[in-house]
Design a protein around this nucleic acid. Structure first.
Lengths: 305, 305
DNA sequence: CCTGATTTATGCAAGAATGCATGGATTGGA
DNA sequence: TCCAATCCATGCATTCTTGCATAAATCAGG
C-alpha cells in the first residue's frame, strides 16, 4: 500500500470537468445549463476556466454554438468515464440510503425477463439491499395503471398521458435455429431458401405470418408444424432443433445452442421504452430502479455484457 | 443518439466526491487537506456536505480520525473510478497542451525496455503527440546526472540528494524455462531437484551464483553451460530451450514460450523506483512522462495488461 | 433584406465556499 | 498520571462563484 500518493493531477476543479462533459454532450452551453439547472453564463465561465486550467482549447467558438476541437474530443472520453462513475456513485448512494426501502415490480416480456432482467436485478440487489424486486413476466401489455407493475419495458411508445416513457434505444431480432436443425436444413444463402423450412410460431399467428411475408420470406401456414403462445417455450423449441425461431439478436448470439440462420437478414427493428406512472417517477425507490434500468439496458441490448 | 439525456444523477457536487475520495484514501481530513493544498475545515465541510447530499453516512467519527462505514466503502470504488478518470483527463490534457513538446529519454534495464516500455511509449504517443521518446536500454545504472537519460527505472533507492525517487512497488522474478527443456529435465518438485539442471547465466557471475546458493539452490559453476551479459539474450536463450533463466514473474507468465520451473519458488523480490533529477521534475514534459510511468507501471508489473 | 429566435459574452449584486484562528477531544508515550 | 501531539469541529472576515439582466452575434425563413 503506497501511503503517500500524488494527488496533484486530480487537484483541478472536478465541477468544471462536469461542465465540459455535459456541454460537449448537449452541444451548447444553453442546453447544458438547462440540463443542469444552472445559468448559462455560469457554465460558460466554467468551461473557459477549465480550458485555461488545462491549457487546452476544448471548443471552437464557431458562430452560434460550440464545436469540439480534436483535443477536446480526445479528452471527452475521460470526462465520460468520470460522468459514468459519478452516475454510478449517485445511484449506489441513493440505494444505500435507508430512505429507499420497499418493493418494486418490473414488467417485461418473457424473453426480456429471462435475458436482461436477471443481470439488472442482481446489480440492484447489490447497490440497493433495501429494495425487493418482483419480475412480472408477461407478453401482455401490462397495465401499469392497475398497479400490476411499477415499471414496464415495452416495445411501443406509451400513449396514455398519465404514463411517462423514455426511449432506451432500438433492439433488433432475427432468425435463429439450433446447429442440428441448420445441418438438416442444408445451406441457406437467401431468404428465398426458407420456403421449405420449419418455423416455430408464437403469439398472434396471422400477424406474425404477415410480418414474415412482408419481409419477403416465402412461407405459409404449412411452415409452422410447431407453435407456442409462450415466447420462452418458442425459444426453447427452436433450441431443441424443431425449427427456426425469432428472438433478439444479442440474446441469440450469446446462446451457444443457437446460430443465426442468415448472418444479417432479416433484421426486425423495434424500439425499447421504459414506462412508468408519471407520479411514480418521483418515488425515490422507483426512481432508482428506473435509473438503473436506463443505465444498463442499452449495453445489454447491444450484447456487451 | 439519445439527445435528451437525464443528467440529474450527475448533478451533485463533484468536488465533494473528490473530497470524499482523498479523505478516504489518506485516512484523515488533515492528511487529505495537506495532499490537496486545502484547509482542513474546508474538507471537513465538503465531506459533511456530500454525506447530506447523498443521504448516506460515509465516515464514522471515532475519536481522533475517521473510519469508513460499510456504505462508504461501497461508494468508494466509484469515487476511485472518478479519480482515475480525472487523473487520466489531467494527464491527457497536459499532453495535448502545446506547451509540452520536446524529447524525453527513459532509461531502463534491457528486460524492462522490451517488456514494459513499449506499452508506456505507445500510450504516451497517444496522449502527448508532441513528445518524442528515447528508450535507453542498459543494464548499467544510467547516470542521470550526465544527462544520458531524463527518467530512469531502477531497482534500488537513489542515494544522491540531487535525485528524486518514487517507489512504485515490488516486482518479483523466478525461474523460467521452455516447455521442451522442462520435458527433458523431467519432473521438478523442489529446488533441490535442480542440482543437475542447466542454467543460463547472466550479469556478474559470482554474485549471481551466490544469490542462487543463498536461496538453497544446490548449483555450482558446472550448471552454467550457457551465459550472456545481455539479459535479453539470456532470456531468449532460455526460450530456445538451453536451460533455466531468470526473469520477472509477470513477463514470464505472459510468454507462451516459457513456463515456471516451480509454481512459487524461488521468489526474488526487488523494489522498483522511478528516478529523475530533482530539477527536472518541474519540467512539464518530464513531469508528464513521470506521471504516466507512475500510473502504468504498477499494473504492468502485476501482470494485468 | 429583414425579422425573430437562439446562442454566447459581459456587468453587477447576492450568496456561498474558503482560509485562518481557536476550542474541544482523543491517543500514545514518558 | 500527565503531557504533548494530533485530529476534528466552530466562528468570522475575505474571496470567489453564481444568477439575473442585458448586449452582441449568428442563423433560419419569409
Amino acid at each position: 500500500m503506497q501511503e503517500c500518493m500524488d494527488w496533484t493531477s486530480v487537484n483541478f476543479d472536478w465541477n468544471r470537468a462536469r461542465a465540459f462533459l455535459v456541454t460537449a454532450e448537449e452541444g451548447s452551453l444553453s442546453a447544458a445549463a438547462r440540463a443542469l439547472n444552472m445559468a448559462q453564463p455560469t457554465l460558460g465561465r466554467q468551461v473557459s476556466a477549465i480550458e485555461e486550467e488545462l491549457g487546452v482549447t476544448l471548443f471552437e467558438r464557431v458562430g452560434r454554438g460550440l464545436e469540439l476541437t480534436e483535443a477536446g474530443s480526445r479528452l471527452l472520453v475521460h470526462a465520460r468515464t468520470m460522468g459514468e462513475a459519478a452516475q454510478s456513485l449517485s445511484l449506489a448512494a441513493t440505494g444505500q440510503s435507508k430512505a429507499v426501502e420497499g418493493h418494486v415490480a418490473i414488467s417485461a416480456t418473457e424473453l426480456y425477463s429471462v435475458w436482461v432482467l436477471p443481470r439488472v436485478v442482481r446489480h440492484l440487489r447489490n447497490i440497493a439491499p433495501g429494495i425487493t424486486i418482483e419480475v412480472v413476466s408477461s407478453n401482455e401489455i401490462s397495465d401499469l395503471k392497475r398497479r400490476e407493475a411499477d415499471i414496464a419495458i415495452r416495445n411501443t411508445r406509451p400513449d396514455d398521458p398519465d404514463l411517462i416513457g423514455k426511449l432506451i434505444g432500438n433492439d433488433s431480432g432475427t432468425f435463429f435455429a439450433s446447429p442440428s436443425y441448420l445441418e438438416k436444413l442444408g445451406p441457406v444463402s437467401t431468404l428465398a431458401d426458407l420456403a421449405d423450412a420449419d418455423f416455430v410460431g408464437f403469439g398472434e399467428f396471422d400477424e406474425f405470418l404477415g410480418a414474415l411475408q412482408g419481409f419477403g420470406v416465402p412461407i405459409t401456414k404449412a411452415n409452422f408444424p410447431t407453435r407456442s403462445a409462450s415466447h420462452t417455450a418458442h425459444w426453447d423449441l427452436a433450441k431443441a432443433g424443431l425449427g427456426i425461431g425469432i428472438g433478439p439478436c444479442a440474446m441469440g448470439d450469446a446462446d451457444p445452442g443457437l446460430h443465426r440462420v442468415l448472418p444479417t437478414e432479416p433484421q426486425f427493428e423495434y424500439p425499447v421504452w421504459l414506462v412508468a406512472h408519471r407520479e411514480l417517477r418521483t418515488n425515490p425507490r422507483v426512481r432508482l430502479v428506473w435509473d438503473v434500468l436506463a443505465e444498463m439496458l442499452p449495453g445489454i441490448l447491444q450484447g456487451t455484457p
